[in-house]
Design a protein around this nucleic acid. Sequence first.
DNA 1: ACGACCTATAGGACAGTCCTATAGTTGACC
DNA 2: GGTCAACTATAGGACTGTCCTATAGGTCGT
Lengths: 318, 318
Amino acid sequence: MTVAEELLEPDAVHAFGVFADHLNFTTAAATLHLSQPSLHAKIRKLQAGLGIALYERDGRGLRLTAAGERLAAFARDTARQAGDLLADLSGGLAPVVLAAGRGTFRWVIGDGIRRLAGSGRPVRVLTADRDAALTAVTSGRVDLAVIAHDPPPPSLRSTQLAAYPQTLLLPREHALADRTHLDLTDLDGLDLVVPPPGRPHRRALDRALLDAGVSWNVAAEVDGWELLAHFAALGLGATIVNGCVHPPAGLTAVPLRDLPAVRYWTVWRPERDRSAADALTHLRRAPAGPGRSGAGRPGADQPETPEHPGHPTEVGPR
Amino acid sequence: MTVAEELLEPDAVHAFGVFADHLNFTTAAATLHLSQPSLHAKIRKLQAGLGIALYERDGRGLRLTAAGERLAAFARDTARQAGDLLADLSGGLAPVVLAAGRGTFRWVIGDGIRRLAGSGRPVRVLTADRDAALTAVTSGRVDLAVIAHDPPPPSLRSTQLAAYPQTLLLPREHALADRTHLDLTDLDGLDLVVPPPGRPHRRALDRALLDAGVSWNVAAEVDGWELLAHFAALGLGATIVNGCVHPPAGLTAVPLRDLPAVRYWTVWRPERDRSAADALTHLRRAPAGPGRSGAGRPGADQPETPEHPGHPTEVGPR
DNA sequence: ACGACCTATAGGACAGTCCTATAGTTGACC
DNA sequence: GGTCAACTATAGGACTGTCCTATAGGTCGT
């Protein structure tokens, strides 16, 4: 304890946190209202005290070492907690900040965020793809992230938020439109609106359709569920989206039996457990409106037994 | 964030944490290697910055205000986290410190602590009764506490660690000794070794026996399961203990059907979640040896569904 | 009422941090 | 390949803030 306070000079740690955001002494010093040499000396002293290199030169720029990353996360945690306490003492609430993809915000946690914000808790959001969201969590830049498909690495806390079947969006008058569900083989010969190559959803589709021996044609390549549905509505072809997406006028959604459900995971670091727990209670129960009228139950609320033993963990309501 | 760093001058917060432990400027200053006026000025400045009184005079001594308590807990958390990080950076492990009652250490988590310590994780313990253990958790003096009987207040995280039936310890040759289980009415007319009035276990017994309309005699009043069993072994009378207590030579343990099981709760603050999670994985699974040979399964591992909805929450293994 | 043991205040001494100035390093561009 | 631009890194003097000693102000026990 006493030793910690001497080695981890809190002021220097804070400065390092800011520096870690910039990876540039000059601008970091400016935001700290400090001269560049001053900041440099501070961080040099910090490194000397710890006996560890926190950053290193990477050509023209700088890069954090592993230890530096951890210290930066610690710095952000500390700032977060100080803010929490301060808010607590003054009767307010510190904002919870969360990261997710555009589509996730729109379809999966839109209502949850509305509830959370409606509960009086300030919310800040950050759109990011899966990887960016995960690093934002790991580095302490956000409290909470929501990611799709695969569960996060086990070093992070997580819980499954929802699971939606994948559905085929196609014109009401289409021959397949009246079916209660479809198999992949039913898609044989169809024109499909799909994401561009390389996107996770596209990769999964390619793989699944290939495995099923289905031949199909690229009707259009666009990114994001909104656009997929849009172009399907324009009549370019059918498209495969998440069950939580509302079919636009003229289209029907039919569940695809043998595509895996799209699972959503809420993920956070144990250090941010407190903020996360608060947000979770609002994000859970009944995420955004289901694609098929009223029926599309997300698999949340009572989270099912972990399919990846040891990974998903949970926090109950406080 | 920026504001936080200015109001919550980390150095002052640390100093306040130490002061909170002493509630005495003179001695706190000494442990901080600081003059008393210096410490006083520091804390005065801290209060001024926050615009909140952190302590107040209480006759001759001092006492923390509610805000002061929270800040003190924050200070201890911060110190803890700094220690964790430092240990982490140097490849070591920060000690986990936990509080429980004497009997709990001996009978319920003895093995768990051995496992935890055996895993290379340094452990520090602090014996305390239920209330002391809970305040130690709340004030951040310990990471984790194990308490018996009632679940902790919902502001704390907790999970049920184990549940043992209450058993009657009585001489092998006693008429009741061969029964597989007993009802309270079977105890009518018995001499019982019980805890002194006022102790939780005694209160619960008084209440239960009264409700069952059982009349009984105080054979001895002693505190602690060890002594209860000891005096029962001396032949003073039967005694009622927790199923996890090994019956001494010459005594048999018979479960009492209509006394509620004694539940053990592990409890921690969300802020200490990280340390707690680590310790929990070791404390759980198969706590100390059961009273009846091999059979007494504690209700842990897969924690049963919450009986007090909303209260018990859980962390999975990391 | 006095003394012991504190907390609280005042004012001067010192230490650490911050600044300006400048040298060193690296990549980009002509 | 030489020069420029954008940084990082180092040195040395100025000043702000903190710490100390000394002392006054409270509160309780005897």
